[in-house]
Nucleic acid binder design. Structure first.
Length: 817
RNA sequence: GCCGGGAUGGUGGAACUGGUAGACACAAGGGACUUAAAAUCCCUCGGUAGAAAUACUGUACGGGUUCGACUCCCGUUCCCGGUACCA
């Protein structure tokens, strides 16, 4: 048994033993310090792909390392089980989404278990179960009561032939993915949650996220997009109404030469009634998809409405245009245009022959406005009483004047928009609202929750089958008791993924969404690991939801924190042949095949070794074999474990022990700083190579060799737990490797009397010298000059400068004598 | 378009806070063992010149700062992620 490494047998054996010993359970009642390690739960698409494997191997390494360091670890898993792919699969196979979803969950659970991941399976959750989503329904009714949830019109991508709303993903080059018909924008009354009420806190608390990658914090900051500017009321010629806009550049107000409104703006709609040409243009505008990338990259077009706006300061008339790039959902759906000082306005003005009026000039020098827009700050000109003022002061001067005259005010604007949570889909959590002719939109009372989704409906590709489910649709009004109809939209699936991390702390709680004391024990998540593609949306919604839960009184800041994730690791994607693995490209690698051929440990080892966690990982079948070869090499270290060869060599033992303890230091560092497991595993390979070359001579040699092999077995445990346990057993280690104590560095073993110093001349390496550890510059220089291969570069030269970097290098700067 | 990230040998990657570029692997080539194969072990392995010692050159591209730059600054190209209804 011990002479060959048989992965399949070993892995089955240890998974059974771990299960029997219950070592993966998180204990709600425990003296030890808690540690919460969370990986992003998967969408149950049916098969585990390499991205999952990578994510979960990283999380498992962290969880196991923390257990070996004495922590009581919560490492849960579950299923993000609502969503669009289930409906697509349902149409394809003509089976209800629920069936497909639950079958996939069973299959993927088996695959996860085969990998030997140390989850506490007793806490498994699936978001499509009423026991789960009832609490987000409950939360939504609370938000309605607080005025944080509201209904408003919003545009969707609509496909006429399919008679359905399309997700952005389903719009390809402006047409429906199924029937190739051009999509149309359509207004629907939908539910929103006021995330903008929390914009300031979401922004401010980014500063507390010191354990997050800076790039993610930056992306969130930009997404929230706080800008300070002014709201300005323009008049409308021959009308009492005003045209209100927001601008970040009130200093350029005197340069406004036209206004631009969205196609959906009331002014545009009004103008189109008497202008057929404009009506055609508006129709054309309604055919752009709602994707930001499409809107921003299309050709900028516009048309005059015939209306004129009245400038709030000069009283001059400026034309109001409709422009296809102005978005109804942003601000007021109207903007002021200053072509002289904004690139997009400049291009638009040039295209349509609109006037360009320069009102800012550079503080020093001239600017040719005929050539390009001047977008920097400067000094005002052509601005009547504001002439000569610098941009910065002009902003407050002009805003102040507007405020005095009731035509504007300082305004803080966020790019962040309220969270649209309605989806016109079936496979999602029902929105717990009843629409009553008398009482309006009424939240479903707590004692009637959950509003259960009928699970046996069959989507057809058209409208959601929920809209045709009479049994679901008809109910009575919770307020007045009269017949009423249920809300037929379901929640955005980001709703479920926004609070699952907190649910794991008390996953079977039937009395409340979460339990304050369980939150106190576990929350916030100590380490969250998942794909960087979630850097903005999922992570922002989860942060927001955490604050909503706190403010609903489910836990206090002291119990659950103000933020859900203390530390974040964003892993890169798994690629094959330089591109993302996908079925359509036919370049997928099935983890199952790797596991069957080499075992779970080899699959785990390779995914961790092949690339640093945050970088993309290029899959390489040959590399997998290399990983397997390494395990076999470690295995063979056992052959010499009780062998002694030759005379004891104290110096060799000292070098060996230094290597062992330097490796402990390096591997431990990887776990404590950034999880560079590729480097940690490389260090373990180096140690293995050193042990292979080491002659275990005499009792000290034999002891050093055994120490080294035991250290390798123990430190491999977070990465290849089955292998490490088997090796540990064969070594006669007292405990299973996965529950052993993490090795400690013996500082004495690291001490070195002499060090090697690189010698450079003019910054180029010319040799090495060996000197005493704490020798000074004089000693180093003497040693350098005593070395012929170094000294030849000093011949005929005058030493201009000497730089000594202690422990690293000596750089000698010379010039001709 | 906008926001964020990346680019180092034939390949994946390493290089601490600006201090030896290429650790550790993979592939390839050569050799040992074997009747043979597999497995295993040993050697070579950025480029140019050289028998070698060695020298020059080299971290996407063009500049800059520095005694010293893969690392910092300015500009450029290409690739990837996100862009609010994929999750």
């Amino acid at each position: 048994m011990s002479d060959r490494y048989e992965a399949q047998e070993i892995e089955a054996k240890w998974q059974q033993k771990w299960n029997d010993a219950g070592i993966d359970a998180a204990h709600d009642d425990d003296e030890r310090e808690s540690y919460y390690c969370l990986v992003m739960f998967p969408y149950p698409s049916g098969n585990l792909h390499m991205g999952h494997v990578r994510n979960y191997c990283l999380g498992d390494a962290v969880a196991r390392y923390k257990r070996m360091n004495g922590f009581n670890v919560l490492h849960p898993i579950g299923w993000d089980a609502f969503g669009l792919p289930a409906e697509n699969a349902a149409i394809k196979h003509n089976r209800p989404p629920a069936e497909w979803t639950y079958a996939n969950i069973d299959q993927m659970r088996t695959q996860l278990k085969r990998l030997g991941l140390s989850y506490d399976w007793s806490r498994e959750i699936a978001t499509c179960r009423p026991e789960y989503y009832r609490w987000e329904q409950w939360m939504f009714t609370r938000l309605m009561e607080k005025g944080l949830a509201y209904q408003a019109e919003a545009e969707v991508n609509w496909c006429d032939p399919c008679h359905t709303v399309l997700a952005n993903e389903q719009v390809v080059d402006g047409v429906c993915w199924r029937c190739d018909t051009a999509v149309k924008r359509k207004n629907l009354k939908q539910w929103f949650i006021r995330i903008t009420d929390y914009a300031e806190e979401l922004l401010a608390d980014l500063d507390t996220l010191t354990g997050w990658p800076e790039k993610v914090v930056g992306m969130q900051r930009n997404w929230i997009g706080k800008s300070t500017g002014a709201e300005v009321s323009f008049g409308l010629e021959g009308s009492e109404e005003t045209l209100d806009i927001f601008t970040t550049r009130p200093d350029t107000l005197m340069g406004v030469t036209y206004m631009a409104v969205a196609a959906g703006h009331s002014l545009a709609q009004k103008a189109a009634r008497s202008n057929p040409e404009l009506a055609v243009f508006l129709e054309e505008c309604s055919k752009i998809s709602t994707k930001e990338a499409d809107v921003e990259t299309m050709e900028k077009k516009g048309m005059a409405t015939g209306f004129n706006a009245v400038h709030p300061i000069s009283g001059e008339l400026v034309p109001v245009w409709v422009a296809n790039f102005v978005l109804m959902g942003y601000g007021t759906g109207a903007v002021m245009s200053v072509p002289a000082h904004d690139v997009r306005d400049y291009d638009f003005a040039r295209k349509y022959g609109l006037p360009i009026k320069q009102v800012i000039r550079p503080a020093d020098g001239e600017w040719d406005i005929e050539t390009a827009a001047f977008t920097e700050a400067g000094v005002l000109m052509n601005s009547a009483r504001f002439d000569g003022i610098a941009s910065l002061e002009a902003k407050s001067a002009i805003t102040g004047w507007l405020a005095e005259h009731g035509k504007g005010s300082v305004k803080i604007q966020y790019r962040l928009r309220d969270w649209l949570v309605s989806r016109q889909r079936y496979w999602g959590a029902p929105i717990p609202v009843v629409h009553c002719e008398t009482c309006g939109a009424v939240p479903v009372p707590e004692d009637q929750l959950p509003v259960e989704l009928p699970i046996d409906l069959q989507p057809t590709g058209g409208a959601s089958p929920l809209t045709e489910c009479e049994a679901f649709k008809h109910t009575s009004c919770p307020a007045c008791g009269k017949p009423a109809v249920r809300e037929l939209d379901t929640f955005d699936t980001f709703m479920e993924s926004s609070w699952y991390m907190n649910r794991y702390t008390s996953p079977r709680n039937t009395d409340a969404m979460v339990d304050g004391s369980a939150m106190q024990r576990w929350a916030p998540v100590d380490q969250y690991i998942g794909g960087v593609e979630h850097a903005v949306l999922h992570l922002l919604y989860a942060r927001f939801y955490h604050k909503l839960m706190r403010d609903a009184g489910l836990f206090t800041s002291e119990q659950g924190g103000d933020e859900p994730f203390r530390n974040l690791l964003t892993q890169g994607m798994v690629l094959k042949d330089g591109t993302k693995m996908s079925k359509s490209k036919g370049n997928t690698v099935d983890p199952k095949a790797i596991i069957e051929r080499f075992g779970a440990d080899t699959a785990r080892l390779f995914t961790l070794f092949a690339a640093p966690p945050e970088k993309e990982l290029e899959w390489n079948d040959a590399g997998v074999e290399g990983g397997h070869r390494f395990l076999k090499r470690v295995w063979r270290l056992l052959e010499r474990i009780d062998v002694t060869e030759g005379e004891e060599d104290a110096a060799a033992v000292q070098v060996m022990r230094r290597t062992i303890h330097a490796t402990i230091q390096r591997v431990t560092y990887a776990f404590e700083h950034g999880f560079a497991f590729n480097v940690a595993i490389a260090a373990l390979m180096e140690l293995t190579n050193a042990l292979q070359d080491f002659k275990p001579a005499g009792s000290a040699g034999k002891a050093a060799y055994r120490e080294g092999v035991e250290v390798v077995a123990t430190m491999l445990a977070p990465f290849v737990p089955h292998f490490a346990c088997e090796l540990g057993e064969l070594l006669g280690m007292e405990q299973m490797a996965v529950v052993s104590n993490w090795p400690q560095v013996d500082a004495a073993a690291l001490v070195q009397d002499e060090i090697t110093l690189v010698v450079q001349i003019q910054g180029k390496k010319r040799g090495e010298i060996t000197i005493a550890k704490d020798a000074g510059q004089d000693v180093a220089m003497a040693a350098a000059q005593a070395d012929a291969s170094i000294n030849k570069w000093l011949d005929g030269m005058q030493i201009a400068k000497v730089i000594l970097v202690p422990g690293r290098l000596l750089n000698i700067v010379v010039k001709p004598a």
